[in-house]
């Protein structure tokens, strides 16, 4: 017993170090392996509040660019309105029918903290569970895909940006629906790479890349980027494609969180399928 006490006394610094190190590895492991583990829940959005304050001060410097991007988005949306179309012979009436049911909701939010140069980048936005945001929702900007919500507090959410090693977004080449996985290799925030596109699929530079219909997070066909360069490695079955992203992550200010109303239903069905095995 005395030896034990002496042992603890002699090595208490190491024991302290070891225990704390173990603790940090455990929470790091949980965060990397289980989507549900939410660090933001423990810290209660304290950091987000801090960034909100900082952001409200620095927001003024970017107002001009923000207005420009919002105006161009408004213009685009206006051009999609019904009254922007020439009525071609027949009248279109809107009936609340059973054929078209809304599947996706959009919640607008502002970016309060962002980074682009780390290996794993995260974005903090100023809307949270009170506004209906839950983990694993897709996030888009006015130009294209931004990322996936990882954790939510009552007024803030953390988004794993597309510039993150753990973010994999299911995408496809628009013209022939060849699907692949969008993964960032950590080099340049303007480019990402599309992996697992079979090499028999013909592709050319400047082909648009859009979100695929396999993703439960994003509606099909949202713009992601366009092919900047592509090559085939002889030893590989897949194209290696460099994608130029439409979203400029460095100047990101306004984003929309996508709520898939049918997601739970789809997920439940797919989980049932897994249970069969």
């Amino acid at each position: 017993m005395r030896n034990l006490i002496f042992f603890f006394y002699k090595y208490y610094t190491f024991i302290l170090f070891f225990v704390l190190e173990l603790f940090s590895f455990v929470i790091l492991y949980q965060y990397n392996h289980y989507q549900r583990a939410s660090f933001l829940n423990y810290t209660g959005g304290m950091a987000s509040g801090f960034y909100e304050t900082v952001n409200s001060t620095t927001n003024y410097f970017g107002l001009r660019n923000m207005n420009d991007s919002l105006m161009s988005e408004n213009a685009r949306l206006r051009s999609q309105m019904l009254n922007a179309y020439y009525q071609n012979g027949f009248t279109q009436t809107s009936i609340s029918d059973t054929l078209y049911k809304q599947q996706y909701d959009y919640i607008s939010a502002n970016v309060v903290n962002n980074s682009v140069s780390k290996r794993n980048n995260y974005i903090t936005i100023d809307k949270g569970s009170k506004h209906g945001i839950k983990p694993d929702m897709g996030v888009i900007g006015s130009n294209g895909v931004v990322g996936i919500v990882t954790s939510v507090s009552s007024h803030f959410s953390t988004v794993r940006s597309a510039l993150n090693a753990n973010t994999k977004i299911s995408c496809m080449v628009q013209k022939n629906n060849a699907f692949g996985s969008l993964e960032w290799n950590g080099d340049d925030p303007k480019f990402s790479s599309l992996k697992y596109v079979n090499k028999h699929v013909p592709i050319t530079t400047n082909d648009p890349i859009v979100t695929s219909n396999f993703s439960m997070l994003f509606p099909e066909g949202l713009p992601v980027g366009k092919i900047y360069a592509h090559s085939i490695d002889a030893s590989d079955n897949f194209h290696s494609i460099k994608v130029e992203l439409y979203t400029d992550f460095a100047t990101l200010k306004n984003v929309y969180v996508i709520r898939n109303i049918f997601k739970d239903e789809q997920q439940m069905l797919q989980n049932n399928l897994k249970g069969d095995h």
Binding site: T13, F14, L16, F17, L20, E21, F23, S24, F25, V26, I27, L28, Y29, Q30, Y31, A37, F39, L40, T43, M46, A47, F50, Y51, N120, Y122, T124, T150, S151, T158
Partner: peptide, 30 residues
């Protein structure tokens, strides 16, 4: 050691990376 872990914890809180800075700065402290 305690202060290093605390420093890391504060950094983690502000960069949404649980355990990452804590583990790294813990090594420095030790």
């Amino acid at each position: 050691v305690s202060l290093s872990f605390f420093t890391g914890l504060v950094m983690d809180t502000f960069s949404s990376t649980p355990g990452l800075h804590m583990a790294a700065s813990g090594f420095v402290g030790y």
